[in-house]
């Protein structure tokens, strides 16, 4: 059986999602048996040219050059899969979409004229066709392995878009929200294994919106728990600030007075 040719490309991002591939320590040998890692700059300086069967794309589009580069990568890709919140929703850097990016540049850099950047941070799907998305900040190693294994077997990957609550309950975690801690779990896509609530923290929404998120009802609950509109804006305006459902909810609360 010919090995699957895999490539990893990076855009505006922190590299954490790519690291999930290297983090597959125990499974890494099995991966390289089944997959030819043709282009993965973080792992090897030997970069083989395309075309590739499977392209993992990390990061968001924040420069004009990157907007062109993703078009070329799409042409080389059989399956193009975005990995992580940046590639899927624009990432934390999509906070610029709610502000004046030029003003940020002036405030941060001594020589803003050296900086060439777009006014927005946009997900890969805003530029090219995306075949699948792996959510998370960062993605989970388990979902990456599941996607690769499914692709090798020619089956659909099992990556349900249901809320984190189902993972919490399945592992027996006591609901922190019912105990008074604001938690985005009920509107957040599963896949992390309900990590934060298992440490008695509310969910930060790293995996972005679940399949049918009722963010307004959750925001109303946060208000009842004493959260201010500003705190609610911050809750939804995080790694997945640019995801449609979270963006709408943060904007709905933005002009309410505290």
């Amino acid at each position: 059986m010919p090995r699957l040719r895999l490539a990893v490309f990076k855009f505006a991002s922190c590299d954490g999602c790519q690291l999930s591939l290297l983090d597959c320590e125990d499974e890494l040998l099995a991966i390289t048996d089944a997959v030819e890692i043709a282009h993965f700059a973080e792992a090897s300086s030997t970069l083989a040219p395309g075309p590739y069967d499977l392209v993992l794309v990390e990061g968001s589009i924040t420069t004009a050059q990157d907007a062109e580069r993703i078009q070329e990568i799409r042409k080389q890709a059989g399956l193009l899969v975005t990995i992580g919140a940046c590639a899927t929703a624009g990432g934390i850097q999509a906070l610029r979409n709610f502000a004046d990016a030029a003003e940020y540049t002036r405030a941060v850099y001594p020589h803003p004229d050296y900086i060439s950047t777009l006014a927005t941070s946009t997900p890969i799907a805003a530029h090219v066709k995306v075949d699948a998305e792996l959510r998370g900040c960062p993605i989970s190693k388990e979902s990456l392995l599941e996607f690769i294994a499914a692709t090798l077997a020619g089956r659909a990957p099992v990556l349900p878009a249901r809320p984190v609550c189902i993972e919490c309950k399945s592992r027996g975690t006591v609901c922190v929200l019912v105990q008074g801690t604001p938690c985005l779990g009920p509107v957040t896509h599963a896949g992390c294994g309900a990590l934060c609530p298992s440490y008695r923290r509310g969910c930060y929404g790293c995996f972005g919106p679940s399949e049918t998120p009722n963010t307004a009802a959750l925001a109303a609950r946060f208000t009842a728990l004493g959260q201010t509109p500003r705190e609610i804006v911050h809750a939804f305006r995080n790694f997945n600030a640019g995801a449609a459902a979270f963006k709408r909810e943060s904007e709905a609360n933005e002009h309410k007075t505290d």
Binding site: A34, A149, R155, P163, S170, C175, P186, V187
Partner: peptide, 26 residues
């Protein structure tokens, strides 16, 4: 919220789903 918590904590709710998982060797 359509979060499913009511069904998860319900002591009579019995619905399950079945999924097949293959490993990397297939």
């Amino acid at each position: 919220l359509s979060c499913g918590n009511c069904t998860m904590v319900c002591p009579t709710c019995f619905c399950t789903t079945v999924a097949d998982h293959t490993d990397l060797t297939t």
